[in-house]
């Protein structure tokens, strides 16, 4: 009981702290690609403390406050269900399907909150965000289904154990490379990076769902970004890169997955909403379905 309680505290805490590192890495990589020096090491902490230390803030009603709870709560719950080295949390009780469901909660929470802001940019932004969720969830579900069939279990602890017992040759990325590739594209869409950044679009709809978020609300969104990087990275590592045996190999793997995403994002422009759906439902979905067919042939 005490161990479980320690897990429930430690897992989100580690997620937040390593998420800060990932956010810093994303900003540094972007700066290097643009031939800049980039922000100092403590910049993510400065930003979050500064936003939480604002002296005035605007709330747009009860739903606006509840939406922040759903945002952070959704991700903190997701951390508890993701097994990391030495800490299993509730991963044995929940499974991959639960996790996929929980990962939708933050975006839905944001939609509820933005709806009460009455800002047209926010409404456009959140409708785009939910549309892009519809776009990347199709290949994502195909990838999840393939992984479930391949491992024969939806329990993430089993998934990690199977990969760790067999070594690199049983990692998802070697046994089902097509699904791993489709999964990488779906993860990229999930992070909301260019070219799938249609719902942030600073120059077009003024950061969309975040347009009315000020002070502490914006601070909560910065915290959420840390969790988002970490959750997506850990989920990918768990499914395709052998999960975590020890922290020294696990965290670099998570950082590598996020690095791929933030490194390629800078060379793209922004797709239109309909183009995102068309592209996501065509290429990653097709690659994922071929990968799924291979997996099913192998299983049979």
């Amino acid at each position: 009981m005490l161990e479980l309680f320690a897990d429930l505290v430690l897992m989100p805490l580690i997620a937040f702290l390593f998420g800060l590192v990932l956010v810093l890495m994303a900003r540094r990589v972007r700066a290097k690609i643009e031939r800049r020096v980039g922000p100092p090491v403590l910049q993510p902490i400065y930003d979050i403390v500064k936003l939480y230390a604002k002296k005035t803030q605007i709330s747009h009603g009860l739903m606006h406050d509840v939406s922040i709870m759903m945002l952070l709560g959704g991700f903190i719950t997701a951390e508890i269900f993701l097994p990391v080295p030495g800490l299993d949390g509730l991963a044995a009780e929940g499974d991959l399907v639960t996790l996929v469901y929980i990962m939708m909660v933050p975006m839905l929470g944001l939609a509820l909150g933005v709806g009460s802001c009455a800002n047209p940019n926010g409404s456009i932004g959140i409708s785009r965000a939910l549309t892009s969720m519809l776009a990347y969830d199709v290949p994502f579900v195909v990838v999840i289904a393939g992984a479930l069939i391949h491992y024969g279990s939806s329990n993430l602890i089993d998934v990690v154990r199977i990969q760790q017992e067999g070594g690199v040759s049983t990692w998802g990325v070697t046994t089902m490379p097509l699904l791993a590739f489709a999964g990488l594209i779906a993860m990229h869409g999930m992070l909301g990076k260019e070219p799938f950044e249609l719902y942030i679009a600073p120059a077009e709809i003024a950061t969309g769902p975040m347009v009315e978020m000020s002070g502490k609300y914006m601070g909560a969104l910065f915290v959420m970004q840390c969790f988002q990087f970490y959750t997506v990275g850990v989920l990918y590592v768990t499914m395709f890169l052998g999960g975590g045996e020890m922290w020294l190999t696990f965290l670099p793997k998570v950082a590598a997955v996020i690095f791929i995403s933030v490194a390629i994002t800078n060379v793209f422009g922004r797709y239109k909403t309909e183009d995102v759906i068309r592209w996501m439902w065509r290429w990653p979905t097709a690659i994922g379905l071929v990968g799924l067919a291979f997996v099913m042939l192998k299983v049979n």
Partner: peptide
């Protein structure tokens, strides 16, 4: 803001709405 002088070195970064800006 961009690579010539790069004000992100000292934490200055552009924002697009008054709600988020300092």
């Amino acid at each position: 803001i961009t690579s010539r002088f790069d004000m992100e070195r000292v934490g200055v970064s552009p924002m697009v709405t008054p709600r988020q800006a300092d």
